[in-house]
Simulated scan of single mutants.
Amino acid sequence: MTTRAVQSRLHCVAAPRRYHSYDHPPPPPIFSAAESAILSAAYAHVPEHGFTQRALSLGARTAGYPDISISVLPEGVFSLIKYHLVTAREGLAPRKVSVLGGTENSQLIPIPERVELLTWERLQANGAVNHRWQEALAIMAQPSNIPGALHELALLVDEIYHLSGDTSVDPSWYTKRGALSLVYTSTELFMTNDRSPGFQETRAFLQRRLNESDSLGWAFGSVRQWVGFTASAGVNVLRSKGVRI
């Protein structure tokens, strides 16, 4: 089967529309239905093979596509990492009630605690691939992938604050998201070396960092400052893994 024929097959099926903002029309789908099928199947091979071309090839076969199909994934192996980031982020909303309880119960929980619970829930989604996540960080550090990785980080922290019920529209909107970006990336990195049962040490690390995050508030006063901080925080975390950027 030629590459053109594979492309035609991959894009002929429309994917379900995905939502990020709850107040605006849905954006275009991130993955087509066929891409989702390949990436979903490939993701099952990540624990054994990592975020690699091998996992993608096995996923294509499992989904009923020839190996050449992976050549039309626009971002190669990063597409598999993005699939994890997107599905883990989108999985938070359906689990909100189980994490925070019903509406009445959740209203009794202070917003900072809700943020912690939701952040921890998201981090636990890394559990099955945690031993492969340092590889993923190295791939995300490649210049062509950094914008996409940072964009997903921004979407994640925005989703966490939305689900927490935070409705602030003052300058704290930026400070909170900037601080959580730093806390999340540092905790995610810590987790890759955590061997404690149930990642208990990571949970304690997260709680400490969130308690310290108020001191970061002065650093963020505008969109530009927040975006700049998010970018530098993400890059510095990746550099700390020895990745050259």
Rank of each mutant, 00 (worst) to 15 (best):
R61Y: 00
R61W: 02
T103P: 01
I68G: 01
V129W: 04
A44F: 00
A93R: 13
A63N: 07
E121V: 01
Y19M: 08
P171C: 01
T230S: 14
L123P: 09
G127N: 09
Y19H: 10
V6C: 08
H151S: 14
T202R: 00
L56I: 01
L155M: 14
V115T: 06
R61V: 05
A233K: 12
H20Q: 10
L216A: 11
T167S: 08
S106I: 03
R132E: 02
Q124P: 01
D214W: 14
L100E: 03
T187V: 11
S57L: 13
G217E: 10
M1Q: 11
P47I: 01
D67I: 10
S106F: 00
G148D: 09
Y65F: 15
Q225N: 10
S181R: 12
S213F: 08
Q107R: 12
E75D: 14
Q207L: 06
L58D: 00
A231M: 11
W173F: 15
W173P: 05
I68K: 12
D170R: 03
V6R: 09
W218Q: 05
S215Y: 09
G178N: 06
N105S: 06
N130R: 11
H45Q: 04
S168C: 09
L58C: 00
S36T: 09
R9M: 11
S144H: 13
A154H: 12
G50V: 06
Y83Q: 06
R208N: 14
A37C: 10
H84S: 08
V157Q: 10
L137N: 06
A55M: 04
L153D: 11
T52Y: 03
L206A: 11
Y174C: 09
G221A: 04
R61H: 04
F220E: 08
S168V: 04
A149W: 13
L150T: 14
S57G: 00
R17M: 04
G198P: 04
G127L: 02
A179R: 03
